[in-house]
Design a protein around this nucleic acid. Structure first.
Length: 282
DNA sequence: CACGGAAGCG
DNA sequence: CGCTTCCGTG
């Protein structure tokens, strides 16, 4: 099985690549790409899902799965957003089907109006035969979060330390908006090289792991990172908890800067000014 | 309902 | 490029 991920870990001889969390390229795209300047359907869906916009659409049973509860209403909402008054579910679902090839979505067969985001498919964890994971402090480094509310764009990063050492500038910046939905925020803040080694692109041994709830947030389960996890309203099963208040950056800030040992969480400040095209692709 | 080709649009 | 519109097929 192949996928269109890219990673800077592939060229490293590290045995720890398996612990790296990878999301598909599309997951790193900003909500409003400069070219199109139009909101994209997958983001619109995540937006509604994160808002708990009841009625029209909701999360399904599996991780990343969602159910369209009221297809025509969803279509109407989508049509309103795009200025397409004649939008209906037939057309919207055609757009969803175009996501199959792009590996953004796939259909949950047998279940009516049920689709699934492809997040989990590309996550490489719990693969039998891989070396045991190294101690957490060797793997995880959490950087960023402006220490004061008045600082420039807040930056949150999760990264593999080796990546930081070898490519200190290759970690994209991500400035989550306060209302950013969790599933969108998480991938766009995870490690993503700006310079992808083209030649090695196909050599990364991707594994299509069976769905493992919370796999992408495995690192957040590390005891030392619990404050962050709770600040992000992320449950240990990986999917966001109900967070009516949305993002509380001060809360996150308090959680990170208070009570957590400095050796376990490295804090680094960085201007998000010129480098703000976070996950943008070439 | 779900799928995917084809054409068109901004 | 990311849909929108339309439609034939199963």
């Amino acid at each position: 099985m192949q996928c269109s991920c890219s990673s800077s870990v592939g060229h490293l001889s590290s045995p720890y690549w398996s612990r790296t969390v990878l999301f598909p390229d599309w997951a790193y795209k900003p909500a409003w790409s400069p070219g199109s300047r139009q909101v994209q359907l997958w983001h619109f869906l995540l937006e509604l899902l994160a808002r708990g916009e009841g009625g029209a659409i909701g999360w399904g049973g599996e991780w990343g799965e969602f159910v369209i509860r009221d297809p025509e209403r969803l279509a109407r909402l989508w049509g309103e957003r795009k200025g397409k008054p004649h939008m209906n579910y037939d057309k919207l679902s055609r757009a969803l089907r175009y996501y199959y090839n792009k590996r953004i979505l796939h259909k949950t067969k047998g279940k009516r109006f049920t689709y699934k985001f492809n997040f989990s498919k590309l996550i490489m964890v719990n693969y039998p035969g891989l070396p045991p994971p190294p101690p957490a402090h060797q793997v995880i480094s959490i950087a960023a979060l402006s220490p004061s509310p008045s600082s420039p764009p807040t930056v949150v990063r999760l990264c593999v330390e080796e990546q930081v050492r070898e490519h200190p500038s290759a970690i994209p910046l991500c400035a989550p908006v306060q209302s950013a939905p969790h599933p969108f925020w998480l991938p766009c803040c995870l490690p993503k090289p700006l310079t992808t080694p083209r030649a090695l692109h196909g050599q990364i041994p991707f594994i299509s792991a069976p769905a493992c709830p919370g796999a992408n947030l495995r690192e957040l389960r590390e005891p030392s990172l619990q404050p962050l996890a709770s600040a992000l309203h992320v449950s240990t099963n990986g999917w966001p908890l109900k967070s009516p208040a949305g993002w509380d950056l001060n809360h996150i800030r308090r959680s990170l800067f208070g009570g957590v040992k400095q050796t376990e969480i490295r804090v680094e400040q960085r201007r998000a000014g010129s480098d703000a095209q976070m996950g943008e692709r070439e």
